[in-house]
Amino acid sequence: MSEQKTDDVALEYSTHQGQMNIVGFWIFLAAEISLFSTLFATYAVLFGRTAGAPEPAELFEAGTVLIMTFILLTSSFTCGLAIHNMREGSLKGLMVWLGITLLLGLGFLGFEIYEFVHYAHEGATIGSSAFWSGFFTLTGTHGVHVTLGIGWMIAILIQLKQRGLTAVTTRKVFIVGLYWHFLDVIWIFIFTSVYMIGMVV
């Protein structure tokens, strides 16, 4: 069944198996939403339970977080450009933009690691209090997702180099794109409900 080709659709949708993979990934993202909702709820419930450790408002730095947000939002845009190039049939464009996305992702991770180390120096670690446990787990889970996404993109770039644009490689690019946009959306929620509220309250 997987080899039945349909005309007039994007390459990644051209096989039945490709369609199913994409549907399956959307459903996986639904499960991810459930997972992150639970983490957000946990964080919200534990908000303010600092048990003598530093308060979030003392540590959160608007500058760093704004830069991180800007980097990740830009990477989502470049990821979109990569998909656009793929649809246009430009392997080179796809690889360049995907590479840029990957570098931006690495930049984001660098800032996040800097942030965590900085907080640890100020006396806020995962073991400091319930609030900080919730904070590090929520942002850390997002960070681990970004890390996995970067590894995944590297693997796909190698496959693109080896095989060019095929029904399978384009499907993989499309799915990693979905994943990347999803992480961006999660970050927007983290930015607003963790950092902005944390700095104000």
């Binding site: 946990t42 419930v45 534990l46 339970r49 600092t50 048990a51 995962i126 073991g127 400091s128 209090s129 319930a130 609030f131 900080w132 446990s133 919730g134 590090f136 787990t137």
Partner: peptide, 23 residues
């Protein structure tokens, strides 16, 4: 979360560090 509590010393469900066992 409970694994992190038990192995890495976080405070989600603990009595210390203002964790919330009810959660």
């Amino acid at each position: 979360l409970m694994t992190i509590d038990r192995i890495f010393g976080s405070h989600f469900f603990t009595l210390t560090g203002e964790g919330l066992p009810m959660m």
